[in-house]
Nucleic acid binder design. Sequence first.
DNA 1: TGAAGTGACCGTAACGGTTCAGAACCAATT
DNA 2: AATTGGTTCTGAACCGTTACGGTCACTTCA
Lengths: 367, 367
Amino acid sequence: MARSMHVRRPATLASLAAELGVSRTTVSNAYNRPDQLSPELRRRVLETARRLGYPGPDPVARSLRTRKAGAVGLLLTENLSYAFRDPAAIGFLEGLALACEDAGTGLLLVPANPEREDVAAVHRAGVDGFVVYSVPDDDPHLAAVLERPVPTVVCDQPDLGNVDRVGIDDQAAMNSLARHLIALGHRRIGVVCMRLARDRNDGYVTRERQRSAHFHVQRARLAGLAEAFAEVGVEWSAVPVVERFDHTIASGASAAAQVLDRDPQITALICTSDILALGALGEARKRGLNVPHDLTITGFDGIREAEQAGLTTVRQPVLEKGRAAGKLLLDPAERTRPRSVTLSTELVVGATAAAPRGAVEERWFGP
Amino acid sequence: MARSMHVRRPATLASLAAELGVSRTTVSNAYNRPDQLSPELRRRVLETARRLGYPGPDPVARSLRTRKAGAVGLLLTENLSYAFRDPAAIGFLEGLALACEDAGTGLLLVPANPEREDVAAVHRAGVDGFVVYSVPDDDPHLAAVLERPVPTVVCDQPDLGNVDRVGIDDQAAMNSLARHLIALGHRRIGVVCMRLARDRNDGYVTRERQRSAHFHVQRARLAGLAEAFAEVGVEWSAVPVVERFDHTIASGASAAAQVLDRDPQITALICTSDILALGALGEARKRGLNVPHDLTITGFDGIREAEQAGLTTVRQPVLEKGRAAGKLLLDPAERTRPRSVTLSTELVVGATAAAPRGAVEERWFGP
DNA sequence: TGAAGTGACCGTAACGGTTCAGAACCAATT
DNA sequence: AATTGGTTCTGAACCGTTACGGTCACTTCA
C-alpha cells in the first residue's frame, strides 16, 4: 500500500549493486565484461536485474562516460521528408545507411528545417560525427556542425579545406555532357537548374547569381556548361537559364515552359537534374514537340526513372557517395589531413538527345 | 612550446567558468536561459567560449542531466538500407520524418541487422522513444525495445497490449479485395506472399505456416483471403500459396512463375504487396498471358508504381501511418492507457482484374 | 524606515555510468 | 616459508552538464 504511494524510482546500476551487496563495478562488468566475474555472480546480477526491472545500463550515461554515442548525424537542411522524395537523396541515404550498418552505428537524421533557422538541433545531437549532404555553403546549420568537435564529412560541397569531402567533379561531368551536345550540333540552348541559393527565385538567373550560387553542385554544373559552350563561341550571357526552388517534376515542366515560351528557337534544353528533365520531357510532349528531333532534353544524376524514360544524362554513383561518406567518417584509420574522395561519372547516351534539325540539313547539303 | 607538449584538454563548461571566475550555473544559463544573467556577462561568457574554443554544452551530458535525448529511434529489422528500397517503407519514413520535424526531434535509424542477432544497438540508442515498423513478432530486437523504459509505438504489429499501436485492418482490407475478385467470378486462385517468418522459405506454404506467421501483416492478409474464399466454398488448403523471402520485383516474378507452372488453371493471382504484383505482372507478360483476361493480378499497398501500372490493389496511407506513429510517440498529452490508431484503406479497382473467361461464358450461357 | 520585491548569480547534489589501479584470496611453484 | 600468478571483486575518480534552492545587493513602496 504505502509502497505504491510514492513513485518508485527506476532501478539503476547503483541500486542494483546495493541490493546485491556488490560494487557498481561488478554490476557494470556483468553487462560489459562477462569474463571479469564468476558466471554464478553474473547470473545472480542478471536475475536480480530482471526482478527489479532494471533495463540495463543507461545508454546516455554510458555515452557520456565512454565518449561514444554510437551514431552519426546526417544534416540535410531540407525538410527532413524531402530526403525521402528525391531519388538521388534516397540513393545517398541508402549508401550511408549501408556503411553505418556495417559499422553497427546508428544514423541520426537531424531536423534542420531551413525555414526556422534553429540550429539547436545540431547542438543537441549526440553523435560521433556528421555527414553533411548538399546544403548551401552559407547554411547556418553547416556552420554549427563545423563548430562541433567531431569529425565531419561533407558531400556535394565545395572543398572546405579542413574536413573530409566526398563528391564528383560536377563541372567536368556537365562539361562532357555539353561537349556531347555540341558535337551533335547544338548551339542554341536553354538551361533549367535547381535552386542556387536559400532564397526563392523561380525564374531567369543572372550571370552574377550563377557565379555566386551557394549550392556548389549547381554552380559547378553551370560552370561546366558555360565553359564548354564558350569554347565554341556561344555567348553564355545570352543563354537563358531558369531556376526553380522546388525540385519536382512539376517544377521542371514549368521551367521548361518558361524557357520555351521566350526562346522557342532553342534546340536543346539542358537540365541540371533528372527530375527537372522528366518535367521538361512532359512539357515538351504536351506541346507536341518531338524529342529529340524538335528538342533535345538532358538531365543529370542517372536515376532509375530517367533510365526508363531513355533520358540522355550523366550517371553519378549516388549510393556509392553515401557509402563513401560513411566509410570515411567511420574509418578508424589515421585521421590525418582531410581526405577527399572524388567518384567518377558516366555520360549516358539516351534517346532524348539528337542532332538538331538544322545540323542535319547542314550535313545533308554540306561538301 | 611547452603548451603544445601535452594534449590540450578540451574546454568544458567548468573550465570556462573557472576562466571567467563565475559559477558553472552562470555559464550554463548563458546558453540555455539568457534572461537569467545580464547581457554584458553573457556577452563575456560567449566571447571567452569562442576564445577558448568551447563548442557549447555537450549534448550527451545535457541529455543525461535533462533525461531528454531529443531523438526517437526507429527499428526496422531489415538491413537498414532496405528501408530505402521499398516504396511503402519510404512513405512510412517520410511520414515519420515529418512528425519528427514538426516536433524538432531527431530520428535515429537503429541498425538491427537480422543476421547477427546483435541487440546491443537497441541498448546503445540514446532516444526518448521507439517506433517499431513491421518486424516479426518474435524478433529479439523488438523484445529489447520493449524492455527499454521509454514509450514505444509499434506499426504493422499485432496488438501488444501495453504499447501504442498504429496500423490498418489488413484482414478486412484483403477480405474486401477478395470479395471483389469473388464477385468477378474467380474461384481458382493462387497467392504470392512476402516472408512469413525469419527463416527463408522460398516456396509453397503450409496452412500451419500461414497460421503461425510471425509477420502480423502477412498473416492477417492471408487470413482475410482465406475467410472470404471459404465463404464461397473454396477449400483454402487447396489454394497454392507461395512465399518469398526477398521483397523484390524479381521475387514476385519467380513466385508467379512457380504458381503458374504448377497450377496453370488459376484465373487470379493475388499478391500481398504491389512490389510482388509488379513482378507477377512482368512474368505474365513474359508468358504471353493477357492480363486481366487470361489472368487477374492484384497487389496491396497502393504505391505509385502500381498506380502507373493500373494495378488493382488496396491503397493504404503509408505516409499517414508514419506520421501517426510519430505523433503518437511525441504527443505530450496524457499518456494513459495504450492508444491504438487504425487507418482506413481503399480498394483500388485498376485494370489488372476482370472476370475470368470462364465466368464470362457462364454468364453468356447462363439463364 | 522597514518590509517586500526583484535581478543576478552561486553551491551543491545529482544524472547513471565506466575505468583503472589495487586488495583479498587461493593455489601452485620455488 | 616465501614468492608468483591468476581470479574475482572493490573504491574512488571521472564524464560534463543542469535542477534546485538558495544568497545577496539593490530597488520600491507604504
